[in-house]
């Protein structure tokens, strides 16, 4: 029996080494598609179930949000009419100029297939996803790709300790956004002399492969110690991850 144990431990160590040296990719490739299929199916089917604890835990804020959404919906309808008019005007002007504006960034659409510590997407290396690319939903930053297999990729979220996003507030205060215990988002390394207030909007500064002006969230709590070099703030993230089905991976062209 001891032989079996040592044989299995040895096999595990050999597998780790071979996988680290990427010699096992030929074995993993055929398994990618069935895994993606299973994960996608389960993730889609479990949407209501996943949202239930979130709803129960945040019932009050969800109802408040619903009210504000209803107000926003009404004003959006009015805006939509104006937007349509402006869009038509813009299209005709572009045609007239004959020069469609080149986008600075390429957006690769992806479906979310899992969300535990990381967010997992159904696109990978073969679709042009590389490690370090930013992942967004609308103008909101969700995180960055930290591992890309051939057909799927893993996204490091803003709540993760391993992420470091250079950020700037709407007052011009700079710092680094990182996570803590997969729960909270922190705005760290802010100089004591720099102004920082609750409800300040936090955006990406455009450094470290992140596109500029992506929304990260709002400052909700400030921890300041006069003896420390830096001050720190908790950020209320704008990303509502349980609701995400489709996101975009951003590539700088």
């Amino acid at each position: 029996m001891k032989k079996t144990f040592f044989l299995l431990v040895l096999s595990s160590l050999i597998l780790i080494l071979l996988d680290y040296l990427t010699y096992l990719n030929f074995l993993k490739k055929p398994l990618e598609n069935p895994i993606i299929y299973v994960k996608k199916t389960v993730y889609t089917k479990s949407a209501d179930f996943r949202f239930l604890p979130h709803l129960l835990a945040n019932y009050k804020s969800v109802t408040e949000k619903l009210d504000s959404y209803e107000e926003n919906r009404r004003s959006l309808i009015e805006l939509q009419v104006t937007l349509d008019e402006l869009k038509n005007e813009n299209d005709s002007l572009r045609k007239q100029l004959g020069s469609p504006l080149p986008p600075d960034y390429l957006f690769i659409p992806a479906r979310v297939i899992a969300w535990s510590r990381y967010l997992e997407l159904d696109i990978g290396f073969k679709d042009g996803v590389r490690e370090g690319m930013a992942v967004v939903e609308g103008r909101t930053l969700i995180g960055s790709v930290n591992k890309a297999a051939d057909f799927r990729s893993r996204v490091l979220l803003l709540t993760d300790e391993d992420i470091a996003v250079p950020a700037i507030t709407d007052r011009g205060t700079r710092g680094i956004v990182s996570g803590r215990f997969n729960k909270t988002v922190l705005f760290d390394q802010v100089l004591q002399k720099d102004p920082l207030f609750i409800d300040d909007l936090l955006l990406t500064s455009g450094e470290a492969n992140y596109p500029p002006n992506l929304i990260i969230g709002k400052i909700s709590h400030i921890q300041s110690d006069d003896a420390a070099v830096y001050k720190q703030a908790t950020v209320e993230s704008e990303a509502d991850i349980p609701l995400f089905k489709k996101v975009f991976v951003v590539e700088r062209t």
Partner: peptide, 10 residues
């Protein structure tokens, strides 16, 4: 979970 193959088994 896209981890190194063999890590969890170890």
């Amino acid at each position: 979970s896209l981890r190194l193959l063999g890590l969890d088994s170890l």
